[in-house]
Design a protein around this nucleic acid. Structure first.
Lengths: 109, 109
DNA sequence: AATATTAATCGTAATATTGCAATATATAAA
DNA sequence: TTTATATATTGCAATATTACGATTAATATT
C-alpha cells in the first residue's frame, strides 16, 4: 500500500511521527544543523551548502515547514528561513520524558 | 528516484536520520510506547494491542530492531522484545544539545 | 518595459514504504 | 510423530518519497 493507517493511532502519536519522519532524512538534518549554525538564511545559501539541486532543497524545506520545524518569511525575492524552537522542544520533551521512565525501570529480556 | 544520497552527508547525520526515520511512523511510536509501559513483551502481545496484521507488526519490529531501538531475545517459540536505552539516549542527547544551542541564540526572521 | 534574481511548482523516473494474505520455519506440547 | 503455537518471510498491490530538469511566479534592478 504505502499508506499509513493514521486512524488507528492517537493524535499525539501521529503528530510525533510526522515530526520525527520530517527529521528522518540526512539532507533535512543537514539543513536544520546549518540553520542552527547561521541562525537565519535564504534557500540559495542552503543550495550552495549542500550538493543537491535547488528543486530538491526547496522540496525538503517544504517538508520541514509543513512539520513546523522551520519558519519561512518572504523578504523581497528571497525567503528567510529559521528554526522553530517550540517544535524542537516538543520532540525533546517527548524523548526526555520517555527516557526518564525508561531509566526508572531497567527491565530487559 | 526514492533513493537517498547518503554519500553527501556525514556519518552522524546519516545515523541520526536512520533513528528518527525508524521512529517516524505512528505504529512504531505506539510499539515503543507499549514497550515502555509493559517493559518486555512478545510479538503476539503487540498484535493483540494494535489493529494491524501480524505480518505488518513483524515488519515494524524488524525496522525498530535494525535501527537498534529495540532488542529481541528468542525464548522458546516466542521472541522477547524490549527497548534499547542507549539508542534512545543518542536521540535525546542530540535533541538536548541542539536545543541548548538554539535557546542561546534566539534569532529568527 | 526588459532583464535579472530567487524560490516554488510541475512533470517524470526510480526506488522505498506500507499493509496484508499466504506460506514457511522453528520450537513446544500431546 | 503429529499438532499446536509463535514469529518471520515472501509476494504483491497501492501509495509515498527522493531527486532533478524545466518551467513558472514574483519581486528587484536597470
Amino acid at each position: 500500500m504505502g499508506i499509513t493507517k493514521t486512524e488507528n493511532f492517537t493524535e499525539t502519536q501521529n503528530e510525533l511521527a510526522v515530526l520525527l519522519k520530517a527529521l528522518g532524512h540526512p539532507a533535512r538534518i543537514a539543513i536544520v544543523e546549518y540553520l542552527l549554525k547561521v541562525n537565519t538564511c535564504i534557500c540559495g545559501d542552503i543550495v550552495n551548502e549542500l550538493p543537491l539541486a535547488q528543486a530538491t532543497i526547496s522540496q525538503h524545506l517544504k517538508e520541514l515547514k509543513n512539520a513546523k520545524l522551520i519558519k519561512g518569511n518572504i523578504e523581497g525575492t528571497a525567503v528567510c528561513y529559521c528554526l522553530d524552537e517550540q517544535t524542537f522542544e516538543k520532540i525533546r520533551n517527548f524523548m526526555d520524558g520517555f527516557l526518564k521512565v525508561l531509566k526508572s525501570k531497567n527491565g530487559c529480556c
